Simulated assay, not measured.
Amino acid sequence: MAKHIPPPSDGDGERIIDEPLSEALSRRYLAYALSVITDRALPDVRDGLKPVQRRVLYAMREMRLNPESAARKCAKVVGEVMGGYHPHGDQSIYDTLVRMAQDFAQRYLLVDGQGNFGNIDGDNPAAMRYTEARLTQAATLLLDGIDEDAVDFKPTYDNQDEEPVVLPTGFPNLLANGTTGIAVGMATSIPPHNAAELIDACSLLLENPQATTEELMAHVQGPDFPTGGVIVEPRASLLETYETGRGGVRLRALWEK
């Protein structure tokens, strides 16, 4: 005989939600998509960092791993980040730290790595118990002013501490280092650029906020990749890429005999 199981109750009556399934799914999927976009996969335009990158740099600052200090084991850094700010897998945190220390992946290194951090041929870095790290001068520029109420803070995941919503960012890191990311229904791929050229372009915008893309390209003539090479893309193609946000950049290698 089938047994009748009453619906869940909170003591004040039945809790039955009458809602079309399509609306329930779309609303929940939208919440999930926004979470992935803002909390994991895409960078913040203000500091050019994803949450895990921001947390790694902030944790290293709290550990006083400044450029003039001695480096510490990456396992120690990963443990601090995972325990205090980023409650996810240790491997994803270490992969983030490693990428910020690879001179072939970052135009301006944010982590000064000591040990085997992999190479451009695809060899993996050494385990985190063998490698050491500390911040670079570029990273200190991103963090400079964080003690002067330059940015807002929010509670960490366990409400035991606080973390910055965004870093103060002393240079345009989003364009200087570039980034890639794939979220739900959205993706980004921004190439790195020369920081000095970017600052010249920013100065032009301060003088003339209505400056055109072509005028800005007098200072920023194209991407500046950490691996070098010569851009063979026509100027008209680069202009269209910058104006539309869609396009590609072809490179040619240089070699000497």
Rank of each mutant, 00 (worst) to 15 (best):
M1Q: 14
A2P: 15
D10Y: 06
P20F: 11
L21T: 15
A24E: 08
L25T: 12
A31W: 02
I37N: 09
I37T: 15
T38Q: 08
L42Y: 12
L42W: 13
D47H: 04
R55N: 09
M60Y: 10
E62Q: 14
E62G: 09
L65S: 06
N66I: 08
P67S: 06
P67F: 12
R72C: 08
R72D: 00
V77G: 07
G84E: 09
G84Y: 06
Q91K: 15
S92F: 09
Q106T: 09
V111M: 12
V111G: 12
D112Q: 15
G115Q: 00
N116H: 02
F117A: 13
N119F: 08
A127H: 03
T131C: 11
A133R: 09
D147S: 13
D149G: 15
A150Q: 14
F153Y: 14
K154D: 10
K154C: 11
D161N: 12
D161Q: 07
D161G: 05
E162C: 05
P168K: 10
G181D: 03
G181I: 10
I182M: 05
S189R: 10
P192S: 07
N194F: 01
N194T: 02
E197N: 05
A201C: 03
A201M: 01
C202P: 00
C202E: 08
L206V: 01
E207I: 08
E215R: 07
H219T: 01
H219A: 13
G228R: 08
G229P: 05
V230R: 13
I231Q: 09
V232A: 10
A236Y: 00
L239W: 01
G247L: 06
V249L: 02
R250I: 06
R250S: 14
R252M: 14
L254N: 09
